[in-house]
Design a protein around this nucleic acid. Structure first.
Length: 650
RNA sequence: GCCGAUGUAGCUCAGUUGGUCAGAGCAGCUGAUUUGUAAUCAGCAGGUCGGGGGUUCGAAUCCCUCCAUCGGCUCCA
């Protein structure tokens, strides 16, 4: 008797061996059609495999990520089969499922390339193969058999993968004429794959190592229904409309110029205003949290970064030193602000009673990012960090760290960033030479972060080997419109720099002690933060933040004077107001200003002039009726106040 | 930096196989209109077709090269 346990603890019994597919079919034929994979005792498997007695199972459909993974992973195999057919002699690397679809890394025969023009060809080959409904068949072979198979085939990448596998047995999956080294699981057959789209092609280094050969990575996505593919493509188009590079141009927030240089953004008046408002917002919070603003120069002697250790690590890839007529003088455009802040700390002796000292600066820094990496405002060569360095006693570290976390939360709250991920980055315990500083200090810093995170009950992932070279950190990441993840806020613990700069304070024991430093930037960089903010809001910024809050639209030139009066009235309430007095019809003015994403439009004509009122229209929400001027001003101020209440510090 | 693609007026885009192919809409300017809740009409002006080199009688179109941008990879103090 075979006993199967379902997630709700209900039980089904069978007389003989039964597969996941058969179980689904027993429940309902419709479920059998939709189910894609099965979890058996925490292991995700193919539906065709027999389930052992007493197993806890869960069936996965499209809506489960396990179901999608099996679907896309099987699609990667299908694409590999098509590519093998289209490009004889092709060698295969790896082909996993990803968040949206799948890819396969392939080494094309000499002289062959895949370009966008080849996508339809690949798609139709895949469709043709899918329609054959070839079953995905799993088999286990020994390591030696697997090695022989791939050596004979000449697939050196698979040979390398097999050599690195720990297991004695290797699993292969075969469908049609295609066999791949693979753990699975897979769909029952290729017929499940109904809609296919090859999305892009790119170079990708074998095993992510830039010293090794670059393979061709083909990205694709598939669906069980054509309609789902169409919906996905519409979604992609919608996402592209939120692209900060596009909206930044449309709303005149920032620009780039070839003459100025790659990756060097220039903030236009509207963008500068927005950014300044964000900066002032943070300054206000920081003041309440005991920070002091400082200002430091944009360059400094190279020695500063030799001392900090950054020059050794990043010097050769950075902007080259600026030389002066005097012999041996070399300055660096500052790639970070910490050494300057260390020197500011050193301008006078500190007592333990003074600590923590918190120096904040919107410091513009320059880093020579690789040209292929530059991307709108999210990856640039000149950017402004909302930087601060906290110098504290070791016993204050954890509390200070938690206070910084609070600031990050205040900001994310105020701007409605709900879907962020938090990541604790620790050093790689197997590769300690990558990092500077003593084991003891590393252990202390890592413990402080982990405790702070735990006490704040922050849900986060822990990544080993992702720490900065001088210390561990907590990063906050947010996705852009196309699902790419960007690091925004960062909090880093550093015992190293105080040592290198010989920072001290006098303790209660009248002895010299070394402070601990926290580097932190809640926004991260103003450029990147604004980019992500644009994508999240699609350019419809919250009222408190948006450059222009209100535009007055006189219905004809006769009412320009009254519009002027409305403008002055609102300006007296600190409401950022414009007039659109172009010689256009009101419909045109509404359209244009809606597209500029201005939150409130005020239409004024004879009726309004007679009664000292305005006709209010809210962005995206149409006509809101007529209001007295005072009434409207109050409405605006109330809305701003509601949005900014989260500034309050507990 | 590497792989692939793209580059035509401020913006969005047309330009079939090299031969009046330098175009359109929006924005701009001028004029008419004096407008009531998402595009009033007309006229004008705008480009060495990313830069440079080459092939050709002739290049936006073909080739080379550089630059920039886009999608990835690697990197990200």
């Amino acid at each position: 008797m075979i006993k199967i346990i379902f997630p709700d603890n209900s039980i089904r019994e069978y007389n003989e061996a039964v597969s996941g597919y058969e179980i689904a079919k027993d429940i309902s034929p419709r479920l059998a059609k939709e189910v894609l994979s099965i979890t058996v005792n925490d292991e995700v498997r193919d539906l065709q495999r027999s389930v052992e007695s007493g197993a806890k199972i869960k069936l996965h459909k499209w809506d489960d990520s396990e179901g999608k993974q099996a679907f896309w992973h099987s699609s990667a195999h299908l694409m590999a089969e098509a590519l093998e057919a289209l490009y004889p002699g092709i060698k295969l690397g790896i082909g996993p499922s990803i968040e949206n679809g799948f890819y396969y890394d392939v080494d094309l025969p000499e002289g062959e390339v895949i370009t966008d023009a080849d996508f339809p060809k690949i798609e139709s080959k895949m469709k043709e193969l899918a329609q054959q409904k070839s079953e995905y068949m799993r088999s286990e072979i020994s390591r030696q058999e697997a090695l022989n198979f791939y050596t004979k085939k000449g697939d050196e990448y698979k040979v390398e993968l097999i050599n690195d596998l720990e297991d004695g047995t290797i699993t292969l999956y075969k469908h049609g004429n295609f066999t791949d080294l693979c753990k699975g699981p897979h769909l029952p057959d290729t017929g499940y794959i109904k809609a296919i789209k090859i999305l892009s092609v790119a170079g990708a280094y074998w095993r992510g190592d830039e010293k090794r050969k670059q393979l061709t990575r083909v990205y694709g996505i598939t669906f069980p229904k054509q309609k789902m593919l169409e919906e996905y493509l519409v979604l992609l188009e919608e996402a592209k409309k939120r692209d900060h590079r596009k909206i930044g141009k449309e709303l005149e927030l920032f620009t780039f110029s070839q003459r100025v240089g790659q990756g060097l953004p220039m903030w236009l008046p509207k963008g500068a205003e927005l950014r300044e408002r964000l900066e002032n917002f943070l300054k206000k919070i920081q003041k309440r949290y005991g920070y002091q603003q400082v200002i430091s120069p944009h360059i400094g002697l190279k020695e500063l970064w030799v001392t900090s250790g950054h020059y050794e690590k990043y010097g050769k890839d950075s902007f080259q030193p600026i030389n002066t007529p005097a012999d041996g003088e070399e300055f660096l455009l500052k790639p970070m602000n910490c050494p300057h802040h260390c020197e500011i700390y050193k301008h006078k002796p500190h007592s333990y009673k003074d600590l923590p000292v918190r120096y904040a600066e919107f410091g513009t820094v320059y880093r020579y990012e690789q040209s292929g990496e530059l991307h709108g405002l999210t990856r640039v060569r000149g950017f402004t960090q909302d930087d601060a360095h906290i110098f504290c006693r070791p016993d204050q570290l954890k509390d200070e760290f938690k206070k910084v976390m609070d600031i990050v939360f205040i900001i994310f709250n105020a701007l409605d960033f709900k879907n962020f991920t938090a990541q604790v980055s620790l050093r790689d315990p197997n590769d300690k030479v990558k990092y500077i500083g003593s084991d003891e200090n590393w252990e202390k810093s890592e413990a402080a972060i982990l405790e702070a995170v735990k006490e704040k009950d922050l849900n986060c992932v822990i990544e080993y080997g992702e720490a900065a070279f001088y210390g561990p950190k907590l990063d906050f990441m947010v996705k852009d419109a196309l699902g790419r993840q960007w690091q925004l806020g960062t909090i880093q613990v550093d015992y190293n720099l105080p040592e290198r700069f010989e920072l001290e304070y006098t303790g209660a024991d009248n002895q010299k002690h070394r402070p601990v430093m926290i580097h932190r930037a809640p926004f991260g960089s103003m450029e990147r933060f604004v980019a992500v903010l644009i994508e999240h809001t699609a350019g419809k910024f919250p009222l408190w933040l948006t450059p222009d809050q209100v535009v007055v639209l006189p219905v004809s030139e006769k009412f320009n004077d009254y519009a002027e009066k409305v403008l002055n009235f609102l300006n007296n309430y600190d409401i950022r107001t414009l007039i659109d007095d172009r010689n256009e019809k009101v419909g045109k003015k509404i359209r244009d200003n809606e597209m500029k994403k201005i939150p409130y439009l005020l239409i004024v004509g004879e009726k309004e002039f007679d009664n000292e009122t305005v006709s209010v229209r809210k962005q995206g929400d149409g006509d809101k009726g007529i209001m007295k001027l005072e009434e409207f001003a109050e409405l605006i101020n109330k809305e701003v106040k509601t949005q900014t209440e989260s500034y309050k510090i507990n």
